[in-house]
Design a protein around this nucleic acid. Structure first.
Lengths: 155, 155
DNA sequence: CCATTTGGTTTTATGATGCAACCACACAAG
DNA sequence: CTTGTGTGGTTGCATCATAAAACCAAATGG
């Protein structure tokens, strides 16, 4: 078989998340969903992507529990795709991608929008990594540790 | 043309970042690079991916300014791939992906490692989105604003 | 100097993607 | 009831990307 290698059984959480949302288009669909889009046609016209690919991606995202289909909303008998809590939980990922572009893009003048605090209209602060006690951490201040064995029914 | 649609000219910073690091394998290569891997063979054996794909990805990452080739390091005449500042700047993206898995994965017991603060050994705190004045922001507290016109040579 | 490792490129088979055409259903007008 | 239009897909086909393995050249290693 020469099919694309799957990260499904991988023990790395980064690989596991990419398995769910790492496909081409997937994160852009989620971005639009976070923006409020719900209908097949809305996604299609906004993203300008082929409908069969959109169909496949929506189904995959539903299978992964990121979107769910809702039977209606505005009376019409069509279904809608709405984010689950797991889907809304991708927001920090999108913010991180956005901030990385804003900081390192070779042509930042081509970036059309900035994410701002609704209350004050000022840009959102850069995401920071902190320890549990609040200390600011750099990548070098961190390390990977084997996951502690799960306590069995400790409650 | 039926080639894969590129997001290169897109004005959305998320699309632009995916253009650079959204390919299958790319973020995993960056993850290993952040972990200290430098040599072609190291990446290949650690990731278990086909060498031609690795070769293409490494070249693309170099083209995008995420990796650069260094002529040596341990005396041998081979070249190495090291992260640029732009490459190291992807760290928050990887942390966001990792934390998303840790929080929402259907089988979290399969996740082998946790990211901890090196000094105390405690897990890194969840990434938070904050306003410039430090207020904690939810997605609903934010909005997109058109980028202000660039001041021309204000310095 | 020959064998092996390293760091790739080339070849070939198959899956993924993009585009356009087609189909099923709902709804509205005539 | 028939026609028309919009929505929400699925199906074919051409092309691209990916994977696996073979191949190759330079650098060690003995």
């Amino acid at each position: 078989m020469v099919k694309r290698t799957s990260f499904e059984g991988d023990s790395c959480p980064i690989a596991r998340s990419l398995e769910a949302i790492g496909d081409w288009w997937s994160l852009l669909i989620i971005r639009e969903a976070l923006f409020g889009l719900r209908r097949f046609g809305e996604f299609q016209s906004k993203l300008g992507m082929a409908r069969n690919i959109l169909s496949a991606r929506l189904r995959a995202l539903v299978d992964h529990g990121i979107l769910e289909t809702a039977p209606a909303s505005d009376g019409s008998a069509y279904q809608e795709y709405v984010l689950t809590p797991k889907g809304r939980g991708t927001f920090p990922i999108l913010v991180a991608l956005r901030q990385w572009s804003e900081e390192f893009d070779d042509a930042p003048e081509e970036i059309a929008t900035i994410l701002v605090d609704r209350a004050k209209g000022l840009p959102v602060k850069k995401l920071e990594m902190r320890a549990e006690d609040g200390r600011l951490l750099s990548p070098a201040d961190t390390m990977l540790k084997p996951r502690p064995a799960p306590r069995r029914r400790s409650a």
